[in-house]
Design a protein around this nucleic acid. Structure first.
Lengths: 145, 145
DNA sequence: CGGATGTCAGTCTAACTGAGATTT
DNA sequence: CAAATCTCAGTTAGACTGACATCC
């Protein structure tokens, strides 16, 4: 009963490669007490300036509730500040602190190191090919988060 | 402050492609009230004959405890039977029922359809290339689960 | 009023940890 | 005795649902 070898299915190969990649990412940030979602949040703020929680959620593809929890954790570590928006009473304005900004270069280095480690088995050409193919596998509809 | 576009990082591309693939898989099996782990369990039994729970866990890369939960659910639906091993008092022998075996062809068809859908944006050549590259990204150490 | 924002409380799955009883 | 098997209870992260008060 030739159950197709699971190991050759695209869904399985993707799952395995992704588990490895996310595990390495997780470990790299865990060394400084953060998780990938923390980095993504800090990077979005460095990139976009001060944002509201809802806007952060949209940019990160996160639920508003989960944004709030993540911000609590980052605010506890003084990596960002949360203040009411003087121009819009509904909103909080989230701003990186000097500490948060200063932490980013280290996080970027860790991120780069993980990319290298993930791609280590491939040549430069193969890396480009993989990237191209993976890009085309992404969701094709509008909500491509 | 050039925060590297997240969208081009291999870890991100892998995560996005994998999320899409697993989502399609999940939906395909959900139509018959199962989840991917249920299919993998049934397929392992069809392939390996009767197995103990621990052996199933090793083959599936699952924790023993999670195997137990999965088997509870499959046994509730009469897709397999769990009996004490007459030769080894510690073990349960897990065996597919006729119903479980009869369900497999439908599940395999669903699995195949998902692979096609995931790979749809790629040509036949590109599919082979992707598969080869992804295989090489897998864990390289011995515990390659 | 409708719509957006932030909060609170809770569910669900996946993966995991620790403890204990039993058998080999 | 040590090792393997199975069970029970609990944790964590991620993604999600519903409800609510506030403000534009």
């Amino acid at each position: 009963m030739a159950t197709r070898p699971l190991a050759d299915l695209p869904t399985w190969l993707l799952s395995r490669a992704n588990r490895r990649a996310q595990g390495l990412l997780y470990d790299a940030f865990a060394e400084v007490g953060l998780r990938p979602v923390h980095y993504r949040t800090l990077a979005a703020l460095a990139d976009g300036g001060s944002l509201s929680q809802a806007e952060l959620g949209r940019r990160l593809g996160l639920d508003r509730k989960d944004v709030a929890v993540t911000l609590d954790q980052l605010a506890d570590r003084r990596l960002l500040r949360r203040r009411p928006d003087p121009d819009d009473g509904r909103r909080n304005v989230i701003t990186l602190t000097t500490t948060g900004l200063a932490l980013l270069p280290d996080l970027e280095r860790r991120l780069d190191a993980v990319q290298q480690e993930v791609l280590a088995p491939l040549s430069a050409n193969e890396r480009r090919t993989l990237q191209t193919l993976l890009r085309r596998l992404g969701p094709t509809d509008s909500r491509d988060r």
